[in-house]
Design a protein around this nucleic acid. Structure first.
Lengths: 141, 141
DNA sequence: CTGCGTGCAAAGTATTTGCAAACCG
DNA sequence: CGGTTTGCAAATACTTTGCACGCAG
């Protein structure tokens, strides 16, 4: 499922501009989450001029469209992750190397029953150290 | 369990200053989460001079000590909530009136088994509209 | 063509930091 | 007394906005 990006964008009524496509493929190649500035730095290798605001705007739009996922980070900076996995699930993020693992579990059905109100969204994210990072520097994020 | 705040602070090696105690009791009286600035505005009623940075610092310290909880909000501002419930659980937050409901469920045991790494922390938060808000303005946060 | 997308420059604004003075224990 | 805590002022730094031009459809 490599290059339906253009198609995905069309579905979201976003134009398939070179920069959007580049952002998507760039993130798709990462196993980890990235900050807007990191994405921007990488894009500058391929584009003579690209503005940081453009990156912010596009990441935001892509996340709203569901093509990529916002990562919730203790330091409250923005990070994004491209997740090829299409069915509902959550993530384990490594605070050290930023790798992301899928978690195929979501207790939300049970939770929704317990809540006295309307659920609009939910956040489930597990933070920690991946096996590699945990072994190497035994616990220092 | 009203005023062991001083004791709680001591456990965290934080001095029981009037301002810290005020922050705690102020939050303890709320059923909802509050921003640092809101806390600050309320504190100014009782203290001739109180700096916003002090509020930020104390909220952060109290949250790190586990006396209060940071709320994760879509707008990425800081919010804090005092939760009297001592055993592990999570929260349903109303994006409209900011009320907080406890959710006595956490699927983390199951999740930890699935993860290939060391879990340091986890976030489970359900966002939505409480029954009252859902009924009144049927869906506009 | 026509409106969405982008660059650039500039503005926000919540949050942090530095330091001297005040204070808890 | 001695290390914490606090106020104040100022700085950070991430993120967002405005506007004119360029490009996708």
């Amino acid at each position: 499922m490599p290059e339906n990006f253009a198609h995905n964008l069309k579905d979201l009524k976003l134009k398939a501009t070179p920069k959007r496509l580049a952002i998507l493929s760039l993130l798709a190649e990462e196993l980890s989450y990235a900050s807007p500035e990191e994405v921007w730095r990488k894009l500058r290798r391929n584009f003579a001029s690209i503005g940081l605001p453009t990156v912010y705007r596009n990441l935001e739009d892509l996340a709203n469209g569901g093509l990529i996922t916002k990562v919730i980070h203790p330091n409250r900076q923005l990070y994004y992750y491209f997740c090829p996995n299409s069915h509902h699930h959550h993530h384990f993020i490594c605070l050290s190397c930023r790798k992301v693992e899928d978690i195929n579990f979501c207790g939300m059905e049970e939770i929704e029953k317990k809540v006295d109100g309307t659920v609009l969204s939910h956040i489930v994210q597990v933070n920690g150290l991946c096996r590699d990072c945990a072994e190497s520097h035994g616990g220092t994020p």
